[in-house]
Amino acid sequence: MNLTSHEIRIGLAGAAVAALAATLPLFDQGYYLSISVNIMLYAALCTAWTLFSGPTHYISLATAAFFGLGTYSVGLWINHLPYPVLVGIAALVSASLAGLVGAATLRLSGVYFVIFTLGLAELVRQLVTWAQAKFTTRMGLYVFTDMTEEHIYWMLLALTVAVFITGWAINRSRLGFAMQVIGNDETVAKHVGIDTARAKIVLFMVSGAFIGIAGAISAPRYAYIEPPSAFNPMISFLVVIMALLGGTKRLWGPLVGVVPFTIVMDIVSARFPNHTSIVIGLAFLAIVYFIPNGVTGLIEQARAKWQARQTAVGEEKAA
């Protein structure tokens, strides 16, 4: 493996940011830690989402389904299997579901995919509720562990770092190159020998696995898991908004959206609980009409304009 000096610099900067973020629980154990766990959760979810939806432009609303399966994997077997194994199971189960959904819809146009994933969390919720009512006597599951908020925070941070490293590795791989070609022209992609459907399905499975792991990590936070909270469709929508708000062209783009929007949603749900839907609606509309390429897109545009003006000025001086 040969890294360019540019890549090494970015890697070091990323490591420094991650290390700095890791020290946060040392300063506060209360409100700030709790909101930081939320931010870290959405950071992991949004980057994992962007792994797939960034290059393909397919809008996935399956996040809640994968996340819920992750929490359920932990809830069901926490008394029987060691926790790390459960995280692995969560990844496997979510990836399998992603594979099935992908196989059914990713050969078709984007609309079918959105519609399918739109109802997916609700479908899984119905099935889980039904199975619980039929085969067990209780409606929920208790998850008792000795894990604290700090532990969860650190695990989510590690997960986010893992998503970044995976994203970087994919970009350097055949799969990443294939996605670039597909993003340019799917017809050409097929005719140079790319199995476009397979490439998309694989990527969706990787993304789904990470989201499932995020669910597994979050499970101890809830203590009591029941279908409506585990498969809360709001998670899917929030992830889409935050990722698009930040911008999905780069893997770090979503982070720009995650931090402010998690804080905004925290304030809104605490003070104006009846207005959450309206805020989400307005956020969607704002993204479509004002910042279609996300905040990072705006910054890049401004920079390109500035550079163009600089060169123009330079040329004028030369002339």
Binding site: V114, S277, I278, G281
Partner: peptide, 25 residues
């Protein structure tokens, strides 16, 4: 067509939540 598809999906999602929020209120 693809761009319109993505845009209209996001915009109508926005309308969905906005209308739903207003009716909830």
């Amino acid at each position: 067509r693809g761009m319109l598809e993505v845009d209209s999906i996001l915009a109508t999602f926005g309308l969905l939540f906005l209308l739903q929020g207003l009716m909830l209120l």
